[in-house]
Amino acid sequence: MEIPVTGFIVNHDDAGPNHSHILYITSWDGRPTHVHEFSGDTSVEVGHFHHYAGKTEPAPSGVQHCHDFCTITSVNSGHKHTIKGKTGPAIPLSGGGHVHYFEGFTTVDGSIPHVHFYCGTTGRGIDTR
Rank of each mutant, 00 (worst) to 15 (best):
Phe8Ile: 01
Phe49Cys: 13
Ser20His: 09
Ser111Pro: 02
Thr107Ala: 05
Thr121Lys: 12
Asp41Val: 14
Val99Arg: 14
Thr106Trp: 02
Lys55Cys: 09
Tyr101Asn: 09
Ile22Pro: 00
Thr56Phe: 10
Ser111Trp: 08
His98Glu: 10
Gly88Pro: 10
Gly96Phe: 04
Tyr52Thr: 07
His65Val: 11
Asp68Glu: 13
Gly40Ser: 07
Thr71Pro: 06
Gly62Asn: 06
Ala53Leu: 09
Asp14Tyr: 10
Thr122Ile: 02
Phe105Arg: 11
Ile9Gly: 02
His21Gly: 04
Gly104Pro: 02
Thr6His: 13
His116Trp: 03
Gly110Val: 05
Leu93Asp: 02
His48Cys: 08
Ser77Arg: 14
Pro4Ile: 01
Lys86Glu: 15
His81Ile: 05
His51Asp: 09
His81Asn: 03
His34Ile: 00
Ala59Asp: 11
Glu57Lys: 11
Gly78Asp: 06
His98Lys: 03
Phe69Gln: 01
Gly110Phe: 01
Ser20Tyr: 03
Trp28Glu: 07
Pro60Phe: 05
His34Met: 03
Gly97Ala: 06
Gly120Gln: 05
Gly96Cys: 05
Ile112Asn: 14
Tyr101Asp: 12
Gly40Arg: 02
Gly104Arg: 10
Thr56Val: 08
Asp14Val: 09
Phe38Ala: 07
His65Arg: 13
Asn18Lys: 11
Glu45Met: 14
Lys84Tyr: 07
Pro89Gln: 07
Cys66Ile: 12
Val5Pro: 00
His48Ile: 08
Glu57Gln: 14
Gly120Trp: 04
Val5Phe: 03
His19Gly: 15
Phe69Cys: 03
Thr26Gln: 07
Gly16Glu: 01
Tyr52Leu: 09
Val108Met: 12
Gly104Phe: 03
His114Gly: 00
Lys84Leu: 07
